[in-house]
């Protein structure tokens, strides 16, 4: 079977599993929007960024935990699917989940703003969406290789440390950038290109490591 079709079917499977927690996630996003809606609309500390990252990582991890609990690794590795395809599919569904969550939080934020439920909410900007996507994907790049190396149950503790480290790093960078009064639209083009190149390099490193780890893992 064509690799693209296989990955498509695996992503579809992840979305079917995510449907189980859809209502919880919607509630989670709304709650986060209420909790974090006092941020700035011009900086890296926008509530949309916090909400999108939190919800996207939580949703991806919920699918991983569900699969780990039912030992589905063993099932899928026994089907005519290569382990590399399983890894590619998980990255793809991770990206799509991040996009879905950004869209959902944008919709809820917009509704909150239009309904004027909280006066300090605002419509999501393309800067918020872009920053959310970049930061959430970087967290995903840290999470997935460890997940594929250790499996969900064993990777939980390591991932807490990784998230804490990456989270702290991202907050530090955000605060630094905020203190300099820089926004996404005012970042020099060279810096933007370098950031994109670094993001691509991180992606390649992460997915290569994940495939290597998973191909060697005993299931």
């Amino acid at each position: 079977m064509n690799t693209v079709i296989t990955i498509g079917n695996l992503v579809r499977k992840d979305f079917i599993l995510q449907k189980r927690t859809l209502f919880f996630m919607l509630f989670f996003i709304i709650m986060l929007m209420f909790s974090f809606s006092s941020g700035s609309n011009t900086t890296f500390t926008s509530p949309y960024i916090t909400v999108s990252i939190g919800a996207a990582i939580f949703w991806t991890m919920s699918v991983c935990s569900y699969e780990g609990f039912y030992k589905m690794d063993r099932l899928f590795a026994s089907l005519p699917i290569s382990r590399a395809e399983l890894v590619y599919a998980r990255y793809t569904s991770g990206f799509l989940t991040i996009i879905n969550v950004i869209v959902l939080s944008g919709i809820f934020g917009g509704l909150l703003t239009l309904a004027n439920i909280r006066p300090d909410t605002f419509i999501i900007s393309w800067e918020d969406a872009l920053t959310s996507f970049f930061v959430a994907t970087i967290l995903l790049y840290g999470y997935l290789p460890i997940y594929f190396k250790l499996g969900y149950l064993q990777s939980r503790m390591v991932n807490i440390a990784v998230f804490a480290l990456l989270g702290a790093l991202i907050v530090l960078i955000s605060l630094l950038v905020d203190s300099l009064g820089v926004t996404v639209s005012t970042i020099p083009i060279v810096v933007s290109i370098l950031a994109i190149l670094a993001w691509i390099a991180l992606f390649i490193c992460s997915i290569t490591l994940a495939v290597k780890f998973y191909e060697k893992r005993a299931l």
Binding site: M1, I5, T6, N9, K13, I16, L17, R20, Y66, Y70, K71, M72, R74, L75, S78, L79, P80, I81
Partner: peptide, 29 residues
């Protein structure tokens, strides 16, 4: 693996879904 059928001692199945959905998740491969 396309030519192998397998049954493990612990059936690896998602518990929350119906057998039809589970079968559809597997048969495509």
């Amino acid at each position: 693996k396309d030519r192998i059928g397998f049954v493990y001692d612990e059936p690896c199945l998602y518990d929350d879904i119906t057998p039809k959905v589970m079968k559809d998740l597997i048969r495509t491969y």
